[in-house]
Each structure stands twice: as C-alpha cells, then as structure tokens.
Write a protein that binds this DNA or RNA. Structure first.
Lengths: 157, 157
DNA sequence: ATGCTAATGCGAACTATTTGCATTTGTCAA
DNA sequence: TTGACAAATGCAAATAGTTCGCATTAGCAT
C-alpha cells in the first residue's frame, strides 16, 4: 500500500492507491469470495487490469490480454469487465467518444481532464468542488449517488 | 426573448432563453444562411426541436416529428441533428445510458442533475464551480474547451 | 478421479448511428 | 413558369460497441 500526495498546496489530488500486485490479489479475492471460479483467462485479464495505469477500452484490454494468452476472447473480456464493475472493483467511464473506458477503482474519487488533441487523461480532485456539488444537490432535494466532472481541454500555447 | 432568473439567492440558474418560436426562426435562419435548403421534413424537425423543453434522444425526436408528418424518416432526424449540432444550435449529451440526448443551445451554459430513478434532468449552474474548474485547468497548463458536470442523484427521503 | 455447474469461444443478435444509392424536391436562373 | 441541377430524402445495408445463446470446456468440491 502506498500513499501518494501530489499538489498538496492545493488540497487536491490525494490518492491512496494499491500496487499493481495488491490490486491483482484483491481482484482475485473478489472473485473467490462470491464462489466464482478463477480461470486461466480471468487470471490474465485481472493481471492486465491491475497493471493498467491508463484508461483503456475493452478492445485495448482484449489485445493486451490476448497477447499474453491467446485463449482470451473478447467476450470474456467484456464479461469480466462487467463482473468487476458490478463488484465495484473497476470503474466505467463514457468519455465523449462512444466506447467505454475503464480504470481501477482503488483510488479515491477523482475527476478527469481530457486532452482533446491527444486523448490523454489527467486525474484531479478538488475538495471545494465536491462540497459545492453536494450543496447544490441538497438544495434541489437530492442526494448524489455518483457524479462526473470532465474537462475537455487543450494545452496552453 | 425572455429572461428567467431562478434561485437568485444562490447566484445560480440564470438563463437567457428564447421562446420556442424564436428558436424555430433561428434554426431556419441557420439553415438558410449557409445555402442549405428548407425542406418539409426539416421544418417539422426544427419545430419539434424548438418546442422541446426536455432532453429527448434521436428516437424520441423521430417519433414526435413522424407523428406530425409521416414523411420524416429516422435518417433525416439523425442528419438534421448532426447539422444543428455542428452549427452549435443544439447540444448533444451522453448521459450514462448509451444513446445521445439533445437540448437547445440557446440557454447559457449549465450543468445537469439526473434523477437516476426517473431519468428526469434538472439544469443548474454554479459560478463558483465554473471558476474553480478554470483554475484547475489553468494550473495543469490547459484551457477548457468544453466541460461536463453531471450529478446522478436520488430524491431525498 | 468424478461430476456438477460455471465459464468459455464462437458467431449471431442487438442498439445506436452512419452511409450508399437511386429517387425526389428545393431553388435559382432564364 | 418552367427546367435543370445539386441537395436532401428514404430505404436498406453497413458499422461500432457490446451482449447473448448455446454447445463445449474446465474449475473445484467431494
């Protein structure tokens, strides 16, 4: 377990993240505890997911997994993604291009800045914004179940 | 042209919106000024869009338009939506269900609160949040081109 | 080892959207 | 007012991303 604090001067981007191995172990545990089976292909997919520090889509994950073990099929990737999403182990994002992209869910909640020229994703977090959101929802009579803040940006200069 | 100020105590939700007729006229003008043709089906679709105060998807718009004039096809609805989106006359949203939903773009920018039980969409705006977003992007070396804030909520009690 | 059932691969189905093409229809100039 | 030409349409087929049905394979508890 490692703790990473960046940009501390701005009370933002405070992540508590596990190592890729810890993540893998947790994925495996998640699978086992519900009585599901640990298959070869699941092992490979979980490994790939645990190692991913970017926001790959299903197809990209399929290619990474398939490169390691040719017995991994796209269907199984999709099935595994859905499984882990339902368990809350990974998060699904629908950025502006149609397909879904995934990321590990072991970090604290954060928002995304997407570079519209390179598709690079930068994560950030602002306590103030989080708080304002909650206030607004409360005022309208709602509780926030989940939320999404995406800044589509272009590099300065 | 009407000006609507709600929730003024919270400096939020300040919309300058046109009437449905004004909107329709503007859509027509948008089409004409670029040398495009005003067809029967476009007239119907523009009318439906101008009248919509909700966030309908393409299929819903097709049904509303088709009910008025059976000569309107789904393809044409899609083509018209794309046309108006490119002109900036309407806005496309990708809320969490796969399909896209549209809304008139003549209001000032606002964010969305989505009731996850009813799919109802409430619009809001917070100056403070807008400002914080710009600060964060700037600090990371970016300019915001567009952004998206969606609160997926459940009614209290 | 054995058997039961979950998990897999494959291809077909599905949903949302776009596109190719033959036909229709605005529009503008004569 | 008419004619001609390009733009717009409807339809069906194509596409992209994702899910599903089903026969087969393979975990895993006994």
């Amino acid at each position: 377990m490692q703790i990473k604090i960046a940009n501390a001067s701005q009370q933002r981007y405070i992540c508590i993240m596990q190592s890729s191995d810890e993540r893998f172990e947790r994925f495996c545990a998640d699978i086992k505890t519900v009585g599901l089976r640990m298959t070869e292909q699941r092992k490979v997919i979980l490994r790939v997911l645990a190692d991913a520090s970017d926001h790959p889509d299903a197809n990209e994950l399929y290619h990474r997994a398939h490169a390691i073990d040719g017995n991994v099929s796209l269907s199984t990737v999709y099935r595994t993604l859905r499984l882990l999403e339902e368990k809350g182990a990974i998060q699904r994002h629908a950025f502006d291009e149609g397909r879904a992209r995934f990321e590990n869910a072991d970090t604290e909640h954060h928002d995304h800045l997407i570079d519209i020229d390179t598709n690079k994703v930068i994560e950030f977090r602002s306590e103030k914004i989080e708080q304002l959101q909650a206030e607004i929802a409360a005022e309208l009579g709602y509780d926030i179940v989940r939320h999404k803040l995406e800044l589509y940006c272009r590099k300065r200069n």
